[in-house]
Nucleic acid binder design. Sequence first.
DNA 1: ACTCGTAGTTAGGATATACTAACTTTCAGC
DNA 2: GCTGAAAGTTAGTATATCCTAACTACGAGT
Lengths: 224, 224
Amino acid sequence: MSEQLPASPALTGQAEDYLKAIYELEQRGTSAGTNDIAARLRIAPASVTGMVQRLARLGLAESERYKGTRLTEAGRLAALQLIRRHRIIESYLVQRLGFGWEHVHEEAERLEHAASNELIARMAESIGNPTEDPHGAPIPAADGTIDEIHLESLADVAVGSEATVMRMSDRDPEFLLYLDALGIRPGARVRVLAREPFDGPLTIQVGGASQIIGTNSAARVFIR
Amino acid sequence: MSEQLPASPALTGQAEDYLKAIYELEQRGTSAGTNDIAARLRIAPASVTGMVQRLARLGLAESERYKGTRLTEAGRLAALQLIRRHRIIESYLVQRLGFGWEHVHEEAERLEHAASNELIARMAESIGNPTEDPHGAPIPAADGTIDEIHLESLADVAVGSEATVMRMSDRDPEFLLYLDALGIRPGARVRVLAREPFDGPLTIQVGGASQIIGTNSAARVFIR
DNA sequence: ACTCGTAGTTAGGATATACTAACTTTCAGC
DNA sequence: GCTGAAAGTTAGTATATCCTAACTACGAGT
């Protein structure tokens, strides 16, 4: 009660960011290479090498020279705690403070390092302990349990079928605004009416309206 | 809307803390000496010298070698922005998330550096744009306007008179818990029934109950 | 199995903080 | 106006990040 630490005991915000980046890269299969991590955090690859070794020293990651980096169980836990904080903050900002879903990522990116466990617990409770954030991403439980499901993307839906929008990345405000304008958000039903040849754009039906969406965009929307 | 910076453009959290410390020291008359700042921030005096020079280079403070440090108008503004964030966060945590008033200082100390102006504005609005925080401290307006009033302390109240509790420091959870147990919080009416000689403890009446409080404690409670 | 291009690392430096130890100023009181 | 304690500064380090430039290792394709 009196000793609420921000997160893992004494990890810097930066180190936390690395853990999260590595976790997310591992998640999407792209085993976390130095360049991948660097790209994700928008820093130079040379900077990654050192931090990754530090994380290894702390027992949070394992890295073989010239091979990739993997999180240890401890590292995974720490990453999931951070992700939990991030997603609860996002949800809270949308539900209790009227933020648009396209803005909350940036805000959460900063707050996730400063919020105590108690604050997170209270925010979560205030919005009914949700299991998904506003972009459809699952929120890890306080003990690190999480339901990472593999979802197909809208780009892979067969012409004529219908799907439910489940999830999209939270990182790009412009993109989220675009999706919102199309009516594409978690829970929306989408029917693919047509697909142009040579990997061309899709014609889709969302909430009665017919829309065109490019392959790149469709590939970033996950459905079931 | 899209470019909400945390505070002053590109000040580190540490620099912000120095500004706040200097502001608060100036406020209580104690013109901000190197040792005063060091004590407030719990760092070595030697560390202060460098930062103070940096703040001077940034146009936020003026410091003469071996004399004290004063904020410039720009520094004062930046400090007030930070204080505004701090006090709004404290108020929000108490009113909307059920925190006890004794815990919010610590939490706000971290969040104040991470919260965007938009978040602060939304929090403030959610709780009706209060003008005082839970400890009775005035909340600066967004433009830096503030009502710093000099208040007398409970230790100075004449025996037999009654006063309204206005304010106390937010920094010491134990002390706040103690005050709370006595029924002393902003708005409470207190009557001084007796004062022991030689600067001795006061007997006070709060909400019907009669209590004893030491001079040190009474000196930290401000009334009108 | 050789050879590049890509991925990754090391070397060397910069910035922001903080610390301790040693030195310098100031100023209050004789 | 001297002097010693308190206040403040400088010097030298340390850590955590980050960067650029230069070098090395790996592995895919001939």
